[in-house]
């Protein structure tokens, strides 16, 4: 157990030693500005990411459509040739 008197003494020492400290104003303002700047950059980067994703999706869809058209054209071409050879 710890005596009441010793507790008070120890608590007094702790309250004198552990006092709130004010960080440097330049540090607080500087960091605040850097954070605001970073936030802006992150937003721009986020917008950039969305643009990239949309472009990728559009590219994939266009490629798929192109491949489907090419496949259909090839199929029709082969079908016509097959029918031609059958007639001959």
């Amino acid at each position: 157990m710890i005596e009441e008197k010793n507790v008070n003494k120890l608590e007094n020492k702790l309250s004198v030693t552990l006092r709130p400290i004010a960080p440097r104003k330049e540090f607080v303002h500087g960091l605040g500005n850097r954070i605001q700047g970073l936030r802006r950059t992150m937003r721009q980067a986020g917008a950039g990411t969305w643009k990239f994703i949309l472009l990728m999706l559009a590219g994939i869809l266009s490629l798929g459509l192109l491949l489907a058209l090419a496949g259909r054209a090839l199929y029709n071409l082969l079908d016509v040739r097959k029918r031609g050879s059958e007639r001959a």
């Binding site: 709130p20 960080p23 607080v28 960091l31 605040g32 954070i35 605001q36 936030r39 802006r40």
Partner: peptide
């Protein structure tokens, strides 16, 4: 942006 700034000011110390 403003809201995070408020939180920063509130907790930085």
């Amino acid at each position: 942006k403003e809201a995070f700034g408020i939180l920063y000011e509130r907790y930085v110390e």
